[in-house]
Amino acid sequence: MRCVAVTPEKTVVDRETSFVVVPLYDGEYAIGPGHSPVVGRLGAGEARLTFEDGSVERWYVEGGFVETSNDVATILTNRAYPMAELDLDAAKKALEEALKRPASSPEAAEAKADAVATARARLRAAEKAARL
């Protein structure tokens, strides 16, 4: 099964994989070879790609989609970093900033909730990366 991860800037991964785990909006989702066609909404979190030789790559992705068809898993996301590159302090700061945003109207509250959830997920990923 091929796995392709694309950001607006470049294609970050394009390799044969044996197993892919992606962070969907409401929990992790695993894709093996021959998976049925799916379009899934991604949340923020860790994507684990297991390659054919058994090695694992961990990526942090933030929003976007995963699409599987014809044995190709395509990850479309705005941001994708190797987990090791996540900065714990920057993630903490981002969360603080998100919490400070105003929630003066239903729309603003919604935007704030989105930002906070993303920042929390990022912090969680950064903490996990620090432990690894």
Partner: peptide
């Protein structure tokens, strides 16, 4: 459509419009 949408087509749409906008700006 052969695709199954997770969690729902509407939710996917909600995510895709802002993304498409950002991609357009980029």
């Amino acid at each position: 459509s052969p695709f199954e949408f997770l969690p729902s087509p509407r939710s996917v749409l909600e995510e895709i419009v802002p993304n498409a906008f950002k991609a357009k700006m980029f």
